[in-house]
Amino acid sequence: MAELPVDEGSGSSTRSVPTTPLPSPVPVVLRGHGLRMEPLAEHHVAPLQQVVADGEIWRLPYAPHVPAPEALPAAVRGLREDVAAGTRIAWVVVREADGRALGLTTFMNLALADRGLEIGNTYLAGSAQRTGVNPAMKRLLLGHAFDELGCLRVEFRVHHLNIASRRAVERLGAQQDGILRAHRILPDGSVRHTVVYSILAPEWPGIRAALDHRLGI
């Protein structure tokens, strides 16, 4: 794990970084690696209904954030309200070749003063999983966060029993920071321990190179 360099001048054990907050992110289109990531709009409701129906991913364990098809209109409306309020940025993941929607993801828990954010509330159609879409999508998101916005830290939070998602985050090169025990009570009454991972700005160049190699760039 890369370490932040010591700021010798201040005697602090942490690196000197900009103290100005990040600007509030605005929805932009991200393109690359066969994907087009479009800011969430009302017309995405029907395509996203097809996404969640593909593999019935709303029924998967440890995924209470995935709405059932009939709940998509309200879910999209709520996400768009969050975007308008400046608390989240939401994208629909689209395959460039045929324009098919493959999933949804967000920037959330924006900590602008501390130059951090979380990538979360992500879901992909069943047929798009384990096809290379996830690392391609993460390459675009991480590149935007670090290279364009100037983030210091990008975080991922995963249900402790969601082993597939934990391994996917680890393959990105994220480091486990710890576990928030009994962090959330889920709709079915079960208790979620949340595993927290992060990537820091000094680690990003190496992770970017590894992702580019993985994507054949």
Rank of each mutant, 00 (worst) to 15 (best):
P39Q: 09
E42Q: 14
E42S: 13
A46F: 04
P47I: 10
P47K: 12
L48D: 09
Q49R: 15
V51P: 10
V52T: 14
V52M: 07
D54S: 06
D54E: 11
G55S: 09
G55Q: 09
R59S: 14
R59C: 03
P61I: 08
Y62A: 08
A63S: 15
P67L: 07
A68R: 14
A71T: 05
L72D: 08
P73R: 02
A74D: 15
A74G: 14
A74L: 11
R77C: 11
G78K: 04
E81P: 00
E81D: 11
V83W: 00
T87F: 06
I89T: 05
V94H: 09
E96S: 11
D98I: 04
G99L: 10
G99E: 12
A101Q: 04
G103K: 03
T105L: 09
T106E: 15
M108Y: 02
L110C: 06
A111E: 13
A113W: 08
A113C: 04
A113Y: 05
A113I: 03
D114W: 10
R115M: 10
R115N: 10
E118P: 02
G120T: 08
N121C: 09
N121H: 14
T122V: 12
T122W: 14
A125E: 08
A125G: 13
Q129L: 02
Q129M: 08
Q129T: 11
R130K: 07
G132A: 03
G132N: 06
N134W: 01
M137D: 05
M137Y: 00
G143T: 06
H144E: 02
E148Q: 05
L149D: 05
C151V: 03
L152R: 14
R153H: 08
F156R: 01
R157W: 00
V158K: 03
